[in-house]
Design a binder for these strands. Structure first.
Ligand SMILES: [Zn+2]
Ligand SMILES: [Zn+2]
Ligand SMILES: [Zn+2]
Ligand SMILES: [Zn+2]
Lengths: 136, 136
DNA sequence: TCGGGATGTGTTATGACATAACATAACGAA
DNA sequence: TTCGTTATGTTATGTCATAACACATCCCGA
């Protein structure tokens, strides 16, 4: 970890290490993969990873992909804003594209309003082939 | 199991038992909960449940809720049609409402088309409070 | 400066979810 | 009948996540 690259005002050492691993990966990582990547830094137990992930998610720096049981760094400059992010997961190469489209979020909010459902959060995950892979 | 109540042309005994348990529940069930519910019918191992669930999902009779690691019976008469179903999960009472809104599905297809992403499936899960619970 | 709560950390053990691998049985078409 | 396909049973293992407890650190107010 280079001290010059600070990701968030209040990241602890463990949080920063976990974030760096995720940010340096071009595919989602499971908590145990992160653990293995950080054994050299002294990590020994899953909870060290899960606790850091919990904070990073609260800060909006990391997202969990429910359909993969895996985690990704947010691809937006300041993620805390976008409530209704979505993810397109390529089933061939494993890469994930994060999007935050008002055209998708708005009709979901509308549906919730019509149904009287108090929306607290949403999960949108698409499966398929990314542009690079569909041709190959 | 009453032989009079047939759910699908080709359901085997195990598949039918699993479906009945899910269909009779008003909240999602984990595979292990289903297993426990069917021990009286001779079920002894998780694979008996998972294999039935796999087929039922392929038939469109059952959905998996990724954010809960749980399963629900499809609430639509003939589910096989709706590609982009969504689920609203109440965090208080646990009930799930399934919806299939073209107004939500269409902008997702549009996004995929613009991005060159070949859409194979989508998962939409909303968290919050259902109408009944938000007042209580 | 001395608490004392809040937060972060380390460690062990356990719980919850899902599948691999192999053997056997049932079924239907050639 | 014979053979491929599908379903099933069983044991063991793999993967993901948290409970419970102890200790350290930090900050702030008495
Ligand atoms: Zn984000
Ligand atoms: Zn790809
Ligand atoms: Zn359905
Ligand atoms: Zn409710």
């Amino acid at each position: 970890m280079t001290a010059a690259h600070v990701h968030h005002p209040d990241l602890t050492r463990n949080q920063s290490l976990v974030y760096d691993v995720l940010n340096g990966s071009d595919a989602p990582l499971s908590a145990y993969s992160i653990l293995d990547a950080l054994r050299g830094e002294g990590f020994r137990a899953p909870l060290q990873v899960y606790r850091a992930l919990e904070k990073l998610r609260a800060y909006g720096l990391v997202h969990r992909l429910e359909s993969l049981n895996a985690f990704v760094a947010c691809s937006h400059p300041d993620c805390a804003g976008h409530e209704t992010a979505g993810f397109a997961i390529c089933e061939k190469c494993g890469k994930v594209s994060e999007f935050a489209e008002e055209r998708i979020a708005a009709p979901i909010r509308d549906w919730a309003k019509r149904e009287g459902f108090v929306l607290a959060g949403s999960m949108i995950e698409l499966r398929g082939l990314c542009r690079d892979c569909r041709e190959g």
